[in-house]
Simulated scan of single mutants.
Amino acid sequence: MVLRRSLTKIIVALGLFVGTAPCFAQRAPGPFNRLILEQVNSMPKGGQYSASRAATLRLQRAAHFESGIFTVAPNFASPSYCSGATYLVFIKTIEALRARDALRLDLATLQSLLIRDQRDGEGIWGRWNANGPGTARLFKELDLGQNFDDFANAQPGDFMKIFWSPEVGKAEHGHSVIYLGMEKKDGIDHVKFWSSNIPGGYGEKSVPRSKIVYAVFSRLDSPQNLARVSRMAATDSYLARLLSTRSNRREVRDECGM
């Protein structure tokens, strides 16, 4: 009888322990990821890749603001490069929300989205186009959404900065993309993404997971917070200095709120 009571107490205690064990939930699904993927699907294919000054001038022509509407004509941005491609999708997503009357932004905020000759870290486009975690840093400053670096939490439609080497900043080899998911090829894990890719331009690509040294994901949650741009510093000093200095993963995580 004593043994039976002891066993009962142990079983009850174990049950309470298991029942109160901490639960580590995954990140909330992105409310706008599907809309972002719709914009990706509406983008042209091909057009060649080029990170030249001429490509930037074409990018400026591709996104212009007129009569209260952001018009995005990605065919004008050809040839193209990666950060320009993902930024066009970002702008198209914002305009799609406005067209559905799901987002209202004042004129000054909309004009701040325009692509001009911003240097790295300057304004919205200058942050997006910067070395290092430009998009993630912008999301942190304006509280546009979540930043994280765990592939297990990634969802199709997340913005993603790929680092092909351990370098961040001056000597980095990076790629701005939109994450499309994981797949197996010949038993090897591959990462699928969309961007403007070398050499063909706009389109999907799949690379072995092992080729990606590090990645930062940014999930759009609160596009209405773009209205905070008027309170944002004209230039982000961290991103601006990455033109000439190195950074590291710890600093990336600190600067991006991860």
Rank of each mutant, 00 (worst) to 15 (best):
K192Q: 09
R231A: 09
I91E: 05
K184G: 13
I162H: 05
E167A: 13
I188N: 14
T135M: 12
R127I: 06
W125R: 01
G174W: 15
L138P: 00
S230T: 11
S222I: 13
G201P: 14
L180N: 08
Q224R: 12
I124C: 06
A99S: 12
D120K: 03
I162G: 09
K205G: 05
V213A: 14
D221R: 10
S230D: 08
E122M: 01
I178H: 04
M232K: 07
N153P: 14
K205L: 09
F163C: 12
F148S: 08
G123H: 00
D120A: 07
G181N: 03
A227P: 00
D158W: 04
L138Y: 04
E172N: 09
S195M: 14
S196N: 10
F148H: 11
Q146C: 14
D186H: 07
F217N: 04
A154F: 07
P166N: 01
I198V: 11
K140E: 11
Q111R: 06
L103Y: 03
R219P: 00
L180T: 13
D158P: 00
A215F: 00
G145W: 08
S112L: 06
G203Y: 00
G121V: 01
I212G: 07
S165Q: 14
H190Q: 05
L97W: 00
R219S: 04
F90T: 01
I115F: 02
E95Q: 06
I91S: 00
F151I: 08
G169N: 10
E122N: 02
G123M: 02
G203R: 00
D150L: 11
L180G: 12
N129S: 03
W194M: 07
A136D: 03
F159E: 02
G132M: 11
F217Q: 03
N225I: 04
E141H: 15
G123R: 02
L110Y: 05
F90K: 00
S210G: 05
F193C: 06
G174P: 13
I124Q: 01
Q111W: 07
R231C: 12
L144F: 14
G145V: 11
A171M: 13
P199W: 04
R98H: 08
R219D: 02
D158M: 07
V229Y: 09
Q224L: 09
N147V: 14
S165P: 09
I115Q: 01
A130L: 10
L138F: 01
D189N: 12
K184R: 14
H190R: 13
S176E: 09
I91F: 06
M182D: 15
L220C: 01
R119C: 11
S222D: 09
G157D: 11
R100G: 04
F151R: 05
S230W: 11
S112A: 12
V177Q: 03
A108R: 15
W125F: 04
D150Q: 10
